[in-house]
Design a protein around this nucleic acid. Structure first.
Length: 210
DNA sequence: ACATTAAGTGATT
DNA sequence: AATCACTTAATGT
């Protein structure tokens, strides 16, 4: 496992820290659509993603969802970090976008390393920084962008995290992620197809140019 | 052949 | 942009 760590994280962390991570963390595999973190769950460990992608979404009391952003290898979940610090419940839900693997780091270690390792401290800070930016983007797209632009961003993000421009999703799934109705998505997608930006098939969308 | 699910469309608010 | 009502197309049993 230490070798896998070195492959993906050696550019981020010093050798001692890598070794310590390897010693205390738990290696986990996850499959597409697995729920990594659910709302209102207490965090006992923070995830460090080795491979695959996870989407972070907000869920209201009716179970309506809204995708905030994606995290990939080398990322961690800033929400979890803040939950670990404050002993609060998770306010978000994390669902696996693809199959992948991650490390769970016990939360007591995470604060211990903050003072012990400079690289860890920088990583956590930088992680907060980038998540906050993505969060602002998400807010922007809801507040200022029309549905068409949100859909474009969604398709782009999705293609990027799975590293493929053929997406296997239904219009209904997209509608749920963007918190709108299927009919709206179908119409917008149809319009995009007419502009030769995408190609539509059942359960599949191929991205030509965005 | 029939049922189910995904997608397309016009009309209305 | 959302909702309704309805049609059409694809897919599974």
């Amino acid at each position: 496992m230490i070798t896998k760590l070195q492959q993906h994280y050696s550019y981020l962390f010093e050798e001692n820290l890598l070794q310590e991570i390897a010693n205390v963390s738990i290696y986990k595999k996850f499959k597409e659509d697995d729920i990594i973190i659910d709302v209102n769950s207490y965090m006992v460990a923070i995830p460090l993603i080795i491979s695959g992608a996870i989407k972070i979404l907000r869920e209201d009391k009716d179970g309506d969802e809204l995708v905030l952003y994606y995290i990939e290898k080398g990322d961690t979940c800033a929400m979890t970090l803040s939950c670990c610090m404050g002993e609060t419940k998770s306010k978000i839900k994390a669902v696996a976008e693809t199959d992948g693997t991650l490390l769970m780091i016990p939360k007591n270690k995470m604060s211990e390393w903050l003072s012990k390792y400079k690289s860890w401290q920088e990583y956590i800070l930088q992680s907060y920084h980038s998540r906050l930016n993505e969060f602002i983007d998400a807010v922007d797209s809801i507040a200022f962008l029309n549905m068409n632009d949100r859909l474009l961003k969604y398709l782009k993000d999705k293609a990027m995290v799975i590293g493929n421009d053929v997406l296997n999703v239904t219009h209904l799934q997209i509608a749920n992620d963007l918190h709108t109705s299927r009919v709206v998505i179908s119409r917008l997608l149809k319009a995009l197809e007419k502009q030769s930006k995408i190609e539509l098939r059942r359960n599949q969308i191929k991205i030509l140019e965005l």
